[in-house]
Amino acid sequence: QTVQFNGLEYHFPNPEEAEKFAKKVAKELGGEVRVKDGRWQID
């Protein structure tokens, strides 16, 4: 599972970890999490 933001990609072994990370980062950055092409993106 991949999380993308600021032009970087973070890879996680399972979707739960990816989701948790994506939501944490979005909260800290005040961004929005969305899934695109099977990847988590933070904008």
Rank of each mutant, 00 (worst) to 15 (best):
residue 16 E to G: 07
residue 25 V to A: 06
residue 32 E to G: 06
residue 10 Y to R: 04
residue 17 E to P: 00
residue 13 P to H: 09
residue 27 K to F: 11
residue 24 K to L: 10
residue 6 N to E: 06
residue 8 L to Y: 12
residue 38 G to V: 01
residue 12 F to I: 01
residue 41 Q to T: 14
residue 38 G to E: 03
residue 17 E to L: 09
residue 41 Q to M: 14
residue 29 L to F: 13
residue 24 K to N: 07
residue 29 L to I: 13
residue 10 Y to D: 00
residue 16 E to H: 09
residue 14 N to W: 03
residue 10 Y to M: 06
residue 21 F to T: 00
residue 37 D to I: 02
residue 16 E to I: 09
residue 3 V to Y: 03
residue 16 E to P: 02
residue 33 V to E: 03
residue 40 W to E: 02
residue 20 K to G: 06
residue 4 Q to G: 06
residue 31 G to E: 05
residue 12 F to Q: 00
residue 23 K to W: 12
residue 11 H to Q: 08
residue 12 F to E: 00
residue 5 F to T: 02
residue 38 G to N: 08
residue 28 E to C: 15
residue 27 K to S: 10
residue 30 G to I: 03
residue 43 D to C: 15
residue 21 F to L: 01
residue 35 V to G: 04
residue 19 E to K: 07
residue 2 T to Q: 05
residue 15 P to T: 09
residue 29 L to P: 02
residue 26 A to S: 05
residue 23 K to M: 12
residue 10 Y to L: 07
residue 27 K to T: 09
residue 36 K to Q: 11
residue 15 P to I: 09
residue 37 D to P: 02
residue 3 V to W: 02
residue 3 V to F: 06
residue 16 E to K: 08
residue 3 V to R: 01
residue 40 W to D: 02
residue 32 E to L: 12
residue 11 H to V: 10
residue 25 V to L: 14
residue 39 R to H: 10
residue 30 G to H: 07
residue 7 G to Q: 05
residue 17 E to A: 11
residue 4 Q to L: 15
residue 2 T to M: 08
residue 26 A to I: 07
residue 27 K to C: 15
residue 7 G to P: 00
residue 12 F to D: 00
residue 11 H to C: 15
residue 12 F to T: 00
residue 11 H to D: 05
residue 19 E to R: 08
residue 34 R to T: 13
residue 43 D to Y: 15
residue 27 K to V: 08
residue 4 Q to Y: 15
residue 4 Q to E: 14
residue 15 P to E: 10
residue 15 P to Q: 09
residue 9 E to A: 08
residue 4 Q to N: 09
residue 23 K to V: 08
residue 7 G to R: 05
residue 15 P to K: 11
residue 5 F to Q: 01
residue 15 P to V: 11
residue 10 Y to I: 08
residue 20 K to Q: 11
residue 41 Q to E: 12
residue 17 E to M: 10
residue 4 Q to W: 14
residue 5 F to I: 11
residue 42 I to W: 05
residue 36 K to R: 10
residue 36 K to N: 08
residue 24 K to Q: 11
residue 22 A to T: 02
residue 16 E to D: 09
residue 9 E to T: 14
residue 17 E to N: 03
residue 29 L to W: 12
residue 24 K to H: 10
residue 17 E to G: 04
residue 27 K to W: 11
residue 33 V to Y: 09
residue 2 T to Y: 11
residue 17 E to S: 08
residue 10 Y to S: 00
residue 19 E to I: 07
residue 6 N to C: 15
residue 37 D to T: 03
residue 23 K to Q: 10
residue 36 K to L: 10
residue 12 F to C: 14
residue 6 N to Y: 08
residue 12 F to Y: 01
residue 31 G to A: 13
residue 17 E to K: 05
residue 6 N to S: 07
residue 23 K to F: 12
residue 23 K to D: 05
residue 31 G to F: 13
residue 6 N to A: 10
residue 34 R to Q: 09
residue 25 V to R: 06
residue 19 E to S: 06
residue 7 G to F: 04
residue 15 P to S: 11
residue 41 Q to G: 05
residue 25 V to I: 14
residue 29 L to V: 14
residue 38 G to M: 03
residue 32 E to T: 15
residue 42 I to K: 02
residue 28 E to V: 10
residue 18 A to I: 01
residue 15 P to W: 12
residue 14 N to E: 04
residue 39 R to S: 07
residue 39 R to G: 06
residue 31 G to M: 14
residue 2 T to N: 03
residue 5 F to P: 00
residue 24 K to G: 07
residue 43 D to P: 04
residue 27 K to R: 11
residue 32 E to F: 14
residue 30 G to K: 07
residue 14 N to A: 04
residue 10 Y to N: 00
residue 38 G to W: 03
residue 9 E to Q: 10
residue 39 R to L: 12
residue 13 P to M: 10
residue 13 P to G: 09
residue 17 E to T: 07
residue 18 A to M: 01
residue 14 N to G: 06
residue 10 Y to G: 00
residue 41 Q to W: 15
residue 31 G to V: 15
residue 41 Q to P: 02
residue 35 V to E: 07
residue 17 E to Y: 04
residue 9 E to C: 15
residue 16 E to Y: 12
residue 17 E to V: 05
residue 20 K to Y: 10
residue 4 Q to A: 13
residue 5 F to M: 06
residue 14 N to V: 03
residue 14 N to K: 04
residue 7 G to E: 04
residue 39 R to W: 07
residue 21 F to Q: 00
residue 34 R to M: 10
residue 43 D to N: 11
residue 29 L to K: 05
residue 34 R to I: 13
residue 29 L to D: 04
residue 9 E to H: 08
residue 7 G to D: 05
residue 30 G to E: 05
residue 30 G to F: 06
residue 6 N to W: 11
residue 1 Q to I: 10
residue 33 V to C: 15
residue 3 V to T: 01
residue 3 V to N: 00
residue 24 K to V: 06
residue 22 A to I: 05
residue 38 G to R: 04
residue 10 Y to W: 12
residue 11 H to L: 07
residue 38 G to Q: 04
residue 13 P to A: 11
residue 17 E to W: 05
residue 21 F to W: 13
residue 41 Q to R: 08
residue 2 T to V: 14
residue 28 E to M: 13
residue 35 V to P: 03
residue 36 K to S: 09
residue 17 E to D: 10
residue 10 Y to V: 06
residue 31 G to Q: 07
residue 17 E to Q: 08
residue 11 H to E: 06
residue 26 A to T: 04
residue 32 E to P: 04
residue 37 D to C: 15
residue 13 P to Y: 07
residue 1 Q to A: 13
residue 41 Q to N: 07
residue 20 K to P: 01
residue 25 V to G: 01
residue 26 A to P: 00
residue 29 L to H: 11
residue 40 W to Q: 02
residue 28 E to F: 12
residue 34 R to V: 13
residue 21 F to R: 00
residue 28 E to Q: 10
residue 42 I to E: 02
residue 14 N to C: 14
residue 40 W to R: 01
residue 11 H to G: 04
residue 12 F to H: 00
residue 42 I to L: 04
residue 7 G to L: 04
residue 16 E to R: 08
residue 5 F to A: 04
residue 8 L to I: 13
residue 20 K to M: 11
residue 8 L to N: 10
residue 40 W to G: 02
residue 22 A to S: 03
residue 27 K to P: 02
residue 37 D to Y: 02
residue 9 E to W: 11
residue 42 I to P: 02
residue 39 R to Y: 13
residue 33 V to P: 08
residue 36 K to E: 11
residue 12 F to V: 00
residue 35 V to T: 06
residue 32 E to A: 11
residue 30 G to Y: 05
residue 23 K to T: 08
residue 37 D to L: 05
residue 22 A to R: 04
residue 15 P to F: 11
residue 8 L to P: 00
residue 18 A to N: 00
residue 3 V to A: 02
residue 18 A to E: 00
residue 33 V to K: 02
residue 32 E to W: 11
residue 10 Y to F: 13
residue 13 P to N: 12
residue 28 E to K: 10
residue 17 E to C: 14
residue 32 E to V: 14
residue 23 K to L: 12
residue 5 F to R: 01
residue 26 A to F: 05
residue 17 E to H: 04
residue 3 V to D: 00
residue 43 D to H: 14
residue 20 K to V: 09
residue 37 D to G: 08
residue 3 V to Q: 01
residue 40 W to A: 01
residue 39 R to K: 14
residue 28 E to R: 12
residue 43 D to Q: 11
residue 39 R to N: 08
residue 22 A to C: 13
residue 4 Q to K: 10
residue 30 G to T: 04
residue 36 K to C: 13
residue 22 A to P: 00
residue 22 A to Y: 04
residue 10 Y to H: 04
residue 36 K to M: 09
residue 8 L to K: 14
residue 30 G to D: 06
residue 24 K to Y: 11
residue 33 V to A: 14
residue 41 Q to I: 15
residue 4 Q to I: 15
residue 25 V to M: 13
residue 43 D to R: 11
residue 27 K to H: 10
residue 20 K to C: 15
residue 23 K to H: 12
residue 30 G to C: 07
residue 10 Y to T: 01
residue 23 K to N: 10
residue 25 V to H: 04
residue 13 P to D: 13
residue 25 V to Q: 05
residue 33 V to I: 11
residue 19 E to G: 04
residue 25 V to N: 03
residue 17 E to I: 06
residue 23 K to E: 06
residue 24 K to T: 08
residue 5 F to S: 02
residue 42 I to Q: 02
residue 12 F to W: 01
residue 19 E to M: 09
residue 23 K to S: 07
residue 22 A to Q: 01
residue 36 K to Y: 07
residue 21 F to E: 01
residue 26 A to K: 03
residue 36 K to T: 10
residue 13 P to L: 10
residue 5 F to H: 06
residue 8 L to F: 12
residue 8 L to A: 10
residue 28 E to Y: 13
residue 1 Q to E: 07
residue 24 K to D: 07
residue 6 N to F: 10
residue 30 G to Q: 06
residue 14 N to P: 00
residue 26 A to C: 13
residue 35 V to Q: 09
residue 38 G to A: 04
residue 13 P to I: 09
residue 40 W to Y: 07
residue 26 A to N: 03
residue 25 V to K: 10
residue 24 K to C: 15
residue 41 Q to K: 06
residue 16 E to L: 09
residue 31 G to L: 15
residue 28 E to L: 14
residue 40 W to M: 03
residue 29 L to Y: 13
residue 1 Q to G: 10
residue 42 I to S: 02
residue 21 F to C: 13
residue 18 A to H: 00
residue 13 P to W: 08
residue 39 R to E: 06
residue 1 Q to F: 15
residue 34 R to F: 14
residue 32 E to I: 14
residue 13 P to V: 09
residue 22 A to W: 05
residue 5 F to V: 13
residue 5 F to N: 01
residue 13 P to T: 12
residue 20 K to A: 13
residue 39 R to Q: 09
residue 3 V to K: 01
residue 10 Y to P: 00
residue 39 R to P: 03
residue 28 E to T: 08
residue 23 K to A: 08
residue 33 V to Q: 02
residue 5 F to E: 01
residue 15 P to D: 07
residue 19 E to Y: 13
residue 38 G to K: 03
residue 7 G to C: 15
residue 24 K to I: 07
residue 26 A to E: 02
residue 23 K to P: 00
residue 33 V to L: 11
residue 38 G to H: 04
residue 21 F to M: 01
residue 40 W to H: 02
residue 18 A to T: 01
residue 9 E to V: 14
residue 22 A to L: 05
residue 13 P to C: 14
residue 28 E to H: 11
residue 2 T to C: 15
residue 15 P to N: 08
residue 5 F to K: 01
residue 7 G to S: 05
residue 43 D to L: 15
residue 43 D to W: 15
residue 1 Q to P: 08
residue 15 P to G: 08
residue 6 N to G: 09
residue 13 P to K: 11
residue 43 D to K: 10
residue 2 T to R: 07
residue 9 E to S: 11
residue 9 E to L: 14
residue 22 A to F: 04
residue 18 A to L: 02
residue 9 E to R: 10
residue 3 V to I: 04
residue 21 F to D: 00
residue 11 H to I: 09
